[in-house]
Amino acid sequence: STLVRVAKSASTLGIAIEGGANTRQPLPRIVTIQRGGSAHNCGQLRVGQVILEVNGVSLRGREHRDAARIIAEAFKTKERDHVDFLVTEFNVAL
């Protein structure tokens, strides 16, 4: 797995995720990276990567909306000017 630090360089994070506990994709997977968003500007996130942790918080066992909320709040908080993602190329939960 890889730790990717995404600076909040744009007003949006700019990723779409699918998956979460109790779905076919048990951990959130990146399905889109929008051009011009912070994630795209960072240059290290890729479509297909699975998000294991956000700012050290594990997404394992979290349902889709809960995982999405955690990511959204990590981007929104003014406590940090970045979001740390632990990602992997592999579907470790499958």
Partner: peptide, 16 residues
């Protein structure tokens, strides 16, 4: 186990 997995629903997609 494989059959059980196939019964799991697809996930919605959220843009963040």
């Amino acid at each position: 186990v494989r059959e059980k997995r196939l019964t799991l629903p697809p996930s919605e997609i959220t843009m963040l």
